[in-house]
């Protein structure tokens, strides 16, 4: 019962925060609304027994990435609402209509609304799914395919660091 209440409260909060992110004109306010959405998603991860991913979500997304966003907004002095003039046209209405069509298409496609429960999986097995121990054992298991992508991710992050430095430098 508690999980049902938590789900609905968090679902309404996350949808409202993400709509506020799109609607507001001020980039700083939309960044703060996005932080609210990220924290709601992290709480969903805890409800889905993915504790490690929830912690990483708060640290990386709500911490590092949003600080980077806010830093760039302040650096480029885009904090005032009139800094970028939104074009007054039919585009938002058409985009919203097409987005709702997209949502309906997503909901009608496949088995989104009626997933079959796989045989042989009981809810009791869900509990230790996302602990640091389970994630670590699975990530470094040589029989699983995750070790090579893990190493490739380190190369990707190195390339991203070099690319960001070169992009932001005045003269290369």
């Amino acid at each position: 019962m508690a999980t049902v209440i938590a789900f609905w409260v968090l679902a309404i909060l996350s949808v409202v925060a993400s709509i506020a992110m799109v609607v507001t004109k001020n980039p700083v306010r939309s960044a703060l609304a996005l932080v609210g959405t990220f924290i709601c998603v992290a709480a969903f991860y805890i409800l889905l027994s993915a504790q490690f991913i929830a912690a990483v979500q708060v640290i990386v997304y709500a911490g590092a990435i949003m600080v980077l966003f806010l830093f760039v907004i302040m650096l480029l002095n885009l904090g005032s609402p009139g800094a970028l003039r939104e074009r007054g046209s039919l585009q938002p209405i058409i985009a919203t209509g097409l987005g709702i069509c997209f949502l309906i298409a997503l909901l009608l496609s496949g088995s989104l609304l009626s997933l079959p429960l796989p045989a042989g999986v009981r809810p009791a097995e869900y509990e230790p799914l996302g602990t640091v121990r389970a994630i670590g054992i699975n990530l470094y298991d040589p029989n699983q395919p995750w070790l090579f992508p893990f190493e490739a991710t380190s190369i990707l992050l190195l390339v991203a660091v070099i690319g960001a430095i070169i992009m932001a430098k005045r003269k290369v």
Binding site: L48, S49, A50, F52, I53, V56, Q57, V60, Y61, A64, I65, L68, F69, V72, L115, L117, P118, V121, E125, Y126, L129, G130, A134, I135, N138, L139, W146, P149, T153, L156, L157, V159, A160, V161, G163, A164, I165, I166, M167, A168
Partner: peptide
């Protein structure tokens, strides 16, 4: 991933997080 009782869904999320961090750093630099 939880629906099928597997931890592999969370593995994908870890890599998606790393790619998102890389994308944001390069994109904001651009």
């Amino acid at each position: 991933g939880r629906h099928f009782g597997q931890v592999n869904g969370q593995m994908y999320v870890i890599f998606a997080l790393a790619v998102a961090a890389a994308e944001v750093s390069v994109g904001l630099g651009i």
